[in-house]
């Protein structure tokens, strides 16, 4: 009788532990979202990547289609090379444009892909030509001040 109670409680404990792990993996974690391991790799050179980090999402029309895999620096042209892995089920034309965007005012940075009109599709290892860098706030403010000063100058 005691034997059976022990078995029952051990069973309850182990099941509860496994359910806990499963809840953590499925409900709390993002195991069900796009998996990063399979898919094709594309690269893009940016003048400035701002605060982009590896594992940042790659989105098209707001849908997560992949992840940033690696960020490197190109010694030849002094630009940042961003390597992205895109899920196999997502296809983009060769002349698509990638840009670095910010989610909300203070949110994290992500890569956005805008589809082009080419008939040929991007494949594994391809390089995207059309890129738009991250917006650097200081530069924007600087430009704003310049244009204001120019306006004031022409007014006088």
């Amino acid at each position: 009788m005691r034997r059976l109670t022990i078995d029952l409680w051990v069973g309850v404990f182990v099941t509860a532990g496994l359910i806990g792990l499963l809840v953590l993996a499925l409900k709390v974690g993002n195991a069900s979202s796009v998996s990063v391991s399979d898919g094709y790799v594309i690269t893009a050179d940016f003048d400035n990547i701002g605060g982009l980090k590896a594992r940042a999402p790659v989105k098209s029309a707001g849908v997560v289609v992949g992840r940033v895999e690696r960020i490197g620096f190109n010694n030849q042209n002094f630009r940042a090379t961003v390597t992205m892995r895109i899920g196999n089920q997502f296809e983009f034309p060769k002349d698509s444009a990638v840009s670095i965007l910010t989610a909300g005012l203070l949110g994290e940075q992500y890569v956005g892909i805008d589809g082009g009109g080419d008939v040929e599709l991007l494949g594994d290892g391809d390089k995207v030509r059309l890129t738009q860098s991250a917006i650097v706030l200081e530069k924007v403010i600087g430009q704003f001040l310049y244009s204001k000063a120019a306006e004031a100058g022409s007014g006088n």
Partner: peptide
């Protein structure tokens, strides 16, 4: 063997 299961239960009930 018990400790990882206990920690998982702790985190799950905490959440």
């Amino acid at each position: 063997l018990s400790m990882p299961l206990l920690a998982a239960i702790f985190s799950a009930t905490g959440i």
